[in-house]
Each structure stands twice: as C-alpha cells, then as structure tokens.
C-alpha cells in the first residue's frame, strides 16, 4: 500500500515547551486513521504541521508526497480540511459555497459545474442549491462541509472533530460518507471525542503529553490494554497525563 503521510521524529518546540515530540508514523492510502489525544496532548500542533500551516522544529514528514518544510503550498492544494469550527460560509448559498471552494482549489469552470451537479445529487440537496447555508440544519451543513472539503479530489482529508453537536443518527450518517470516501481511496485523518467513533477507524493513535503513546488497530489496542472498549484504552493512557493545556 502506498503511504500518504510519513513522519520521522517530527517535533515542534515553542521555546522550552515541546508540543509534539518525535512523532513517527505512517498512514496508508485509503486508510481511516483516528488521531486521538487528551486536550493539550499536541494533536492540533501535529495537524497544523501536517497541513503545512506550521513549520516543524526538527524531524521530517511528507504529506501526499510533499515535504512539510519546503512544499507547504503543494500540500495545501492536495489535502482537504474540515473542522466543526470552520467550514462553510453561512451567507453564501449551497451552490455558491461549492463554487467558492472549488475555485479556491483552482478547478476549471466546466469542472466546477459538473462537480456541483454531482455533489447536489449525491447529497440530495438539489432543491436547496439556492438556499443560504445558515438556513440548513446542522447535520446537512456538516455533510455539505465534508463534501466540499474533498471537492478537488485530494489524496487525504483532515477532519477535526467533524461530528460535534449533531444527533446520533446524523453522526452515523456522517460516518457513511467517510466510509464512502475511504472506499474511493481518499485517506481519512480524523480527530474525535466520541470513543465509539475510534472503533470505526482502521488504526488509531493516542497522543499523551506530546508523544504518541499507542498506535494500532482498535482490536489490537483493546487486547494490549486488556480493555473492554476504546474509551477504557483512552482512559488508561490519558489519565496520568501531566499536560492539560490546549
């Protein structure tokens, strides 16, 4: 399997504080990779480095084949990103949002047209094409935000707590979209505070105090920590965390 992310002792220091300490891991194409950790463990710092938004202090990493030191613009063009906090523009309509993001990613006008029709159909949002995004229910917004984040067919998409605040049925429908994208070969890099969602990942890493304390499939982690579920695994690893900064 080709790898989409490779990191080798990737480190970020802020003065004397080591936010992310020698992270070494690989993520394969089409994999659903869960990136968990306690608040303040260093997840956000690590993600920012992988998205080309923050220059590492030491170590090496490539994302979608591009170097996190020297090719950050290439990385940004070849990844998708969605978070609960930042996703769509409320005062643009559904189709305007799609056009806006596709335009940002440099897609041609005919390609944008085709993609818009296809997306609206997949999401069954044809009737809402001209609706302002702020009028949509949260669950629809999140599904749209996810589709928009992969509108340019990136090799990997970073999802930062994508399912916060939605009802349990919508949360599961969102995972259907994640599975569908992974089946098409899109690599999924996802953070979540819902431990049942950790079980839906092919592999899960758990960060504590700046280092990756565990990385394996959910089944193997449960076996290793003699735990009933992923919540117990997480609790076992994170309960002695020293850092509680965000």
């Amino acid at each position: 399997m080709p790898t989409v992310i490779t990191t080798d002792k990737l480190t970020k220091r802020f003065g004397a504080f080591i936010a992310a300490n020698e992270l070494t891991f690989e993520v394969e194409k089409g994999e659903i990779f869960g990136f968990l950790g306690a608040n303040g463990a260093g997840k956000t710092t690590a993600m920012r480095m992988l998205c080309g938004l923050l220059s590492p202090s030491s170590g090496a990493a490539t994302v979608a084949g591009f170097d996190v030191y020297t090719q950050t613009e290439k990385i940004k063009q070849n990844i998708g990103y969605m978070s609960q906090k930042f996703s769509l523009y409320d005062d643009l309509t559904v189709s305007e949002n799609i056009r806006f993001y596709a335009g940002i990613y440099g897609m041609s006008i005919p390609a944008i047209k085709t993609k818009t029709t296809q997306l609206l159909e997949e999401l069954q949002l044809q009737k809402e094409a001209k609706t302002l995004v702020k009028e949509l229910p949260l669950g629809w917004k999140q599904k749209l935000a996810f589709s928009v984040s992969i509108v340019h067919d990136p090799s990997i998409v970073f999802l930062d707590e994508p399912t916060g605040g939605v009802d349990p049925v919508t949360r599961r429908q969102f995972w259907d979209l994640i599975y569908a994208a992974a089946d098409k070969g899109v690599t999924i890099f996802v953070t979540t505070h819902y431990m049942d969602e950790a079980e839906y990942c092919n592999r899960v890493s758990i960060m504590v105090d700046g280092v990756i304390s565990a990385l394996d499939s959910p089944a193997k982690l449960k076996e290793q920590y003699n735990a009933h579920n992923m919540e117990d695994v997480f609790y076992e690893l994170a309960r002695n965390a020293k850092r509680k900064a965000d």
Binding site: A38, E161, G165, H193, A238
Partner: peptide, 10 residues
C-alpha cells in the same frame, strides 16, 4: 463537557 476529552469529562 463539550469538546473536552474523556478523562476531563469523567
């Protein structure tokens, strides 16, 4: 407890 990790929630 929204957005707070499992340990802090407990």
């Amino acid at each position: 407890t929204t957005g707070v990790d499992v340990v802090s929630r407990k």
